[in-house]
Design a protein around this nucleic acid. Sequence first.
DNA 1: GATATGCATCGGACAGTGTGCGAGTGGTTT
DNA 2: AAACCACTCGCACACTGTCCGATGCATATC
Lengths: 272, 272
Amino acid sequence: MANKPPFTSVWARETPPRRGRDQPALSRGQIVRAALEILDAEGMEALSMRKLGAKLGAGATSLYWHVANKDELLELCLDEVLAEARVPGPQGERSWRDAAAVFAYGMRQTMLRHPWVAPLLGVLPSFGPNALAVTGALTVAFERAGFTGRILHYATGAVVSYTLGATTPEVSWLNMVAGSDVSADEWLDTLRKQVEVAAADYPDLLARHRAQDYSDMGITKSLTFDFGLVALLDGLEVRLRHHLDEAGPPPQSAQSSAPPSSPTEDAAAGRG
Amino acid sequence: MANKPPFTSVWARETPPRRGRDQPALSRGQIVRAALEILDAEGMEALSMRKLGAKLGAGATSLYWHVANKDELLELCLDEVLAEARVPGPQGERSWRDAAAVFAYGMRQTMLRHPWVAPLLGVLPSFGPNALAVTGALTVAFERAGFTGRILHYATGAVVSYTLGATTPEVSWLNMVAGSDVSADEWLDTLRKQVEVAAADYPDLLARHRAQDYSDMGITKSLTFDFGLVALLDGLEVRLRHHLDEAGPPPQSAQSSAPPSSPTEDAAAGRG
DNA sequence: GATATGCATCGGACAGTGTGCGAGTGGTTT
DNA sequence: AAACCACTCGCACACTGTCCGATGCATATC
């Protein structure tokens, strides 16, 4: 309390507008909203607590009153953005295939619109209300169609997995393009050259790579996504019928002679 | 603000010729190997350049002579660990379904054994020699089976997407358990309670959640993975037959009335 | 009115991080 | 001998997430 360095008058210091008691300057929702703005505008690595605090006209550490840590904040942001993927209307009448398509395309759209969610989805735990609602809608539709018990979760899980796995790399690609300041075409060019070098030892790979049509990446990606989704749904439909008939042995496993180990053996991997 | 112009992947640069004395103290391979040890033993966030340098008895910044930056190092590590997923034997005789299973289970095993790769796969560009070899084997088998042109890439892409999307959350789960110091069961308990709270407003969700059997997570996950994979392969098989017959219109899209937008519209999402 | 209690905010500090820069080292070539 | 080179390293910079203790302010209590 010795000396407040240079003299600053009390009056010179503008006092921040303190609001009433029941309405503190910062709120969790406000913080999340501001964080979303930064994330959408500048991407994941642009979000720092200090920056977020500054955007809200608050100190960086003030945020920690409303949010435990940065990870928790990201969890909140993730679920918040998942609200977009929710479908409001009556979904009871939809076929399970339509429901799956709604889910898959909705998720994909959301991820494309908010590229920063891709690395988070599947890595952060997703138990927020919106996440539950989205997957819940899918599950309800599948259940109504006749999927029950384990099969129900298997089937929905497969759709979720495919959607995630198909969209994540796509989004990463867009992220890179957006992150640099060169056009997508230039990017593609350098990419082709890179593969050319990397695949120099695999002539057949190289040939296929050269033959591939890399133009119109966006459309290609969309078609790829749709193709895989329909294929998966077709496969699920077969299984649904088998399941409804309640007869016949469960269809054989995917492993015949292939895998290096049993599918049930590796439950306990991890690090020491 | 990471990558300005065209983020050249490691694989694009050919290694400069060595001119000096036979072996310098540090080598790229040695660095990658040491990094892998840290990653496998302590996970992703335990890897810092200083720590890695110390492990090699070298200064932190010495590494930057052999490796452009940390991202490039991770790219190298990723591809290095993908060598495990390569199948050495003759793969020409395998059916395409077997090849797909080999790929999917091999990938899954690798990811489970090295949990840190999960967040990287699909986010980092994968053009390393091992990545190319692994997906190449899959592509070759599919091509031999009759998949050609676009369909070939669609089909392999679907398998890759599913494998990635299904395994990533599973690995994340294991990561969390391993990262904390509570047992998997305790974790599961607190998780259930969280869902209980989060899903309080959705009685049917809650009921399903209560009914679900969460024990033996590892086995459940394995069965889920297998189920989805087989379903997807079944769907692909249908498409392969259609494609071989060369007749009939391409099967209809997954979208009937559902999706919020056309599948080809959203190619240019991103940030400004 | 004076005082105590609580929520909310803030500045400073700590232990890290990745990495640019310039100096230094020892062997190879001219 | 001098120049060159591949290579290593210490320092420093800007920046990160987050803990801690001090401060203000609004209300409940005396």
